[in-house]
């Protein structure tokens, strides 16, 4: 099971993608719990804001596109965690 977070936009317009192989993580079970609990089907359309990031989060069969202000709560936990693994923190 793989989760990927792709961040585009921002004033720089530079796309960055972070990926995590969930099964290879020492805390794979807590990853799965976090991923299962995410409100994948409850995202709302909202007007884009200038220079904010856009996040595309994938974990088959799910995929969501979230504007930065909506990356809060469990979504923010996930993004922070995926980045932390990729940045060796």
């Amino acid at each position: 099971m793989k989760v990927s977070v792709s961040r585009s936009g921002g004033i720089a317009g530079i796309r960055v993608t972070w990926e995590v192989q969930v099964d290879e993580q020492p805390d794979a079970r807590s990853w799965r719990e976090l991923l299962d609990a995410l409100p994948w089907d409850e995202t709302e359309e909202s007007a884009p804001e200038p220079d904010r990031y856009v996040y595309r989060i994938r974990c088959a069969p799910h995929e969501v596109v979230l504007p930065e202000p909506q990356v809060a709560g469990p979504w923010k936990d996930l993004v922070d965690r995926v980045r932390a693994v990729n940045e060796g923190r």
Partner: peptide, 10 residues
């Protein structure tokens, strides 16, 4: 592209 609100910065 669908990223970056349709490539607005590109």
């Amino acid at each position: 592209t669908e990223d970056d609100n349709g490539g607005v910065h590109l």
